[in-house]
Computed example of a mutant assay.
Amino acid sequence: MTCSPEEAVRGLWRTVAARDFDAFGDWLTDDCVYVDMPVGLALAARGPVDIAKRVSIGLAGLAAYENHDGLLVADGDAVMYEHSETWTFTSGETFVLPFATVHRVRDGKVSLWKDYWDFGAIMNHAPAWWVESLASADTSWVYDATGLI
C-alpha cells in the first residue's frame, strides 16, 4: 500500500530523527534529490545512499540529535514542513536550528527534499573542530542539481 504524501514525509523525518541512515531508502525514491539550499544546487545529493552519506556528515557524529515536529502543510504531492532540530556536539555545545523543508512525493516516497536553514546559525554555534571536520568529509555524494530544480 502506498502512503500519502504527509505519511511519507513524517516517516522520513522519523527515520532522520533516529539517525537510521540505512533506512532512508524506505522513504526516498531512487532518483530523489536532496539539497541544502543555503549551500547551493551544485552540492546536492541524489538517491538514498548518497543522501544518507550527505545527511550523516552533519548528524552522525553528534552526541545527540532531536527533531522537533512542527507545522506540516500538503498540497497534492507537495509537502512543506516547518520544524527545528537540536544538535548536541560531543564537546557539549548545543543549539536549536530552525528549518523549513520542501518535499515532493511520488508513489508514496519523497522524490525531492530541499532544506532551508540559517547557515550563519551553524557557523556561530558549532565548535571549531566540527566545522574543520567538514573539510575532510566524504564528498562522494556530490551531485550538481543546477538546472534540475
Rank of each mutant, 00 (worst) to 15 (best):
W117R: 09
A74N: 08
W129T: 13
L97S: 13
P127Q: 13
A126P: 03
R106T: 13
A128K: 15
V105I: 04
M123I: 15
R104H: 10
R104A: 03
P98S: 10
H103L: 06
A128D: 15
W113P: 00
V79P: 00
A128N: 12
A100P: 04
I122Y: 12
V96R: 12
M123V: 15
A100M: 06
V110L: 03
P127E: 09
K114Y: 03
D107Y: 08
H125V: 08
W87Y: 14
D115Q: 04
Y116N: 04
G92C: 05
T90V: 15
P127F: 00
D115S: 00
H125P: 06
G92R: 11
F99T: 08
Y116T: 03
A100H: 13
V110C: 05
F89L: 03
N124K: 14
L112R: 04
H83D: 07
H83E: 08
D107K: 12
T90S: 14
H103R: 04
T94W: 07
G108L: 01
V110S: 00
W130Y: 14
G120W: 11
I122C: 06
K114Q: 05
T90R: 03
T88C: 06
H103D: 09
D75M: 08
K109P: 06
M80E: 09
D115M: 01
T88H: 02
P98Y: 06
V96T: 13
A126N: 02
S111T: 01
E82H: 12
F99E: 12
W117Q: 09
D118H: 12
L112F: 13
F99S: 08
M123D: 14
G92F: 04
V96D: 11
T94F: 08
V105Y: 00
L112D: 11
V96P: 04
W87F: 15
M80K: 09
T101G: 11
E85H: 11
V110N: 01
H103W: 02
V79H: 00
G76H: 11
S84W: 04
P127Y: 02
I122F: 15
N124F: 07
T101W: 06
T94S: 12
E82S: 09
A74E: 02
W113D: 00
D75V: 08
A126T: 13
P98F: 03
V102D: 04
S84N: 07
E85R: 08
F89G: 07
A126H: 00
W113T: 00
G76R: 09
E82I: 10
S84G: 11
K109S: 10
Y81M: 05
V105E: 04
A74W: 05
S91N: 12
L97V: 13
H83F: 05
W117A: 10
M80N: 09
M123A: 14
I122N: 09
F95I: 02
D107H: 14
E82W: 06
F95K: 03
W129A: 15
P127D: 10
I122T: 08
V110F: 03
W129C: 11
I122K: 09
A121I: 12
E82R: 06
L97F: 01
T88N: 09
T101E: 11
W117I: 11
F119M: 15
V110T: 00
A128R: 13
K114C: 01
D75N: 13
G108K: 02
W130I: 10
E82M: 11
G92P: 05
K109I: 13
E93S: 10
A74P: 00
A78L: 14
H103P: 03
K114I: 01
D115W: 00
I122L: 15
V102Q: 07
T88F: 06
